[in-house]
Amino acid sequence: MKYDVLIFDLDDTLLDFGMTEQNAFRLLFEEYGLPNGLNDYLGTYKAISKILWDDLENGRTTLSELKVERFKRLFIELALEIDPVIFGQKYIENLGKEVHMIEGVEEMFASLKDFRIALLTNGFKDAQHNRVNGSALKNLFEIIITSEETGFQKPQKEIFAYAFEKLQISDPARVLMIGDSLTSDIQGGNNFGIDTCWFNPTRKLNKTDIQPTFEIHTWNKLAEILKKQPITVNA
Rank of each mutant, 00 (worst) to 15 (best):
G18D: 11
M19R: 15
M19C: 08
T20P: 05
T20D: 11
T20Q: 06
T20K: 08
E21W: 02
Q22P: 05
Q22L: 07
F25R: 03
L27Q: 14
L27C: 09
L27S: 14
L27G: 08
L28Q: 03
E30V: 09
E30W: 01
E31C: 04
E31N: 10
Y32D: 04
G33D: 11
G33A: 12
G33L: 06
L34N: 04
L34F: 00
L34I: 15
L34Y: 08
L34H: 09
P35F: 02
N36F: 08
N36I: 03
N36K: 15
G37C: 11
G37R: 07
L38H: 01
L38Y: 06
L38C: 04
N39S: 12
N39H: 15
D40Y: 01
L42K: 15
G43T: 12
T44N: 10
T44Q: 13
K46N: 07
K46R: 14
A47K: 15
I48R: 05
K50N: 12
K50G: 03
I51H: 11
L52S: 08
D54K: 13
D55I: 00
L56P: 04
L56F: 08
E57T: 04
N58R: 12
G59C: 04
R60C: 07
T61E: 00
T61G: 00
T62W: 01
L63V: 08
S64F: 01
S64T: 14
E65N: 12
E65T: 09
L66P: 04
L66A: 01
K67F: 03
K67P: 04
K67C: 07
K67D: 05
V68D: 06
V68H: 03
E69Y: 00
E69M: 11
E69I: 00
E69F: 05
R70H: 01
R70I: 01
R70A: 02
R70D: 01
R70G: 02
F71E: 06
F71L: 10
R73E: 10
R73K: 12
L74E: 06
L74T: 09
L74C: 09
F75D: 07
F75R: 01
I76R: 14
I76L: 13
I76D: 15
L78P: 05
A79Y: 02
A79R: 13
L80D: 08
L80A: 10
E81L: 07
I82Q: 11
I82N: 09
I82T: 10
D83H: 05
D83Q: 11
P84N: 08
P84T: 10
V85L: 13
V85P: 00
V85T: 15
I86V: 15
I86R: 15
G88C: 04
G88L: 07
G88P: 08
Q89V: 13
K90M: 11
K90V: 03
Y91Q: 06
I92K: 13
I92P: 02
E93K: 14
E93H: 14
E93V: 10
E93A: 12
N94T: 07
N94V: 04
G96A: 08
G96I: 10
G96E: 10
K97A: 08
K97R: 15
K97W: 03
E98L: 06
V99S: 06
V99C: 11
V99H: 07
V99D: 12
H100Q: 10
M101E: 11
M101W: 00
M101Y: 00
M101N: 05
M101R: 00
E103P: 03
G104K: 03
V105M: 01
E106F: 05
M108P: 09
F109Y: 05
A110S: 15
A110H: 14
L112Q: 12
L112C: 02
